[in-house]
């Protein structure tokens, strides 16, 4: 038991901040984030025998935390209803958005945006987009590892990551516009 504890501590310690940040972005509050992290760590420690030494521990533990979150969501029945994610409902709107995107000075948006707005934009993303983006960005998981963690095809993961970043960019631009910043024009 003692050896296992030491080994687990050594493995998980470098990733605790990233894991906690991930849990916080999933749950949106510290108390729930700590509960989720504890549950994830408990399951990881219980399943440590199943971890192949020499493989990517971070991806493994992120995957377990993600499963704990999905299970929690199912239990609470708070999981958002699945949306028709890959369908473009309104082609005209999509085209307009592309034009608007092209006219946006993203340099201004990214420079002026504050941390709270980035957090808010992340929190407002639906789980379907938020989970792949957080796993990829915070967990440093490869696409195939994200696909395994979420039990999704690789193509779906790529598509959702693309759309997650697109939604995030647009949300940040909207915050910048709300604050009266000039966001149109050529990027510097």
């Amino acid at each position: 038991m003692s050896d296992r504890k030491q080994e687990f501590e050594a493995l998980v310690e470098p990733h605790l901040d990233a894991l906690f940040g991930y849990c916080l972005r999933l749950t949106r509050n510290r108390a729930d984030a700590e509960d989720l992290l504890q549950e994830g760590l408990y399951k990881s420690f219980r399943g440590l025998a199943g971890f192949e030494r020499g493989t990517h521990f971070k991806a493994w533990v992120f995957r377990i935390v993600t499963n704990a979150w999905i299970s929690h969501q199912r239990r609470e029945q708070r999981r958002p209803q699945p949306q028709d994610l890959d369908a473009v409902a309104d082609v005209e709107t999509a085209v307009q958005q592309e034009v608007y995107d092209a006219e946006t000075n993203w340099g201004v948006v990214y420079q002026e945006v504050v941390d709270d707005e980035v957090k808010r934009a992340l929190d407002e993303l639906p789980d379907e987009f938020r989970l792949p983006l957080l796993l990829s960005s915070l967990g440093d998981l490869r696409y195939k590892e994200v696909a395994a963690a979420l039990d999704l095809p690789l193509g779906t993961v790529m598509s959702r990551l693309f759309r997650a970043r697109q939604k995030l960019r647009r949300a940040l631009r909207d915050y910048a516009v709300e604050r009266g910043l000039e966001t149109t024009g050529v990027s510097k």
Binding site: Y22, L24, A33, Y110, V118, L122, S137, L168
Partner: peptide
Amino acid sequence: QERHLHERIVSVGRE
């Protein structure tokens, strides 16, 4: 710019 955004996400995500 996209790398900058990625860094911001990582930065706010690391608590």
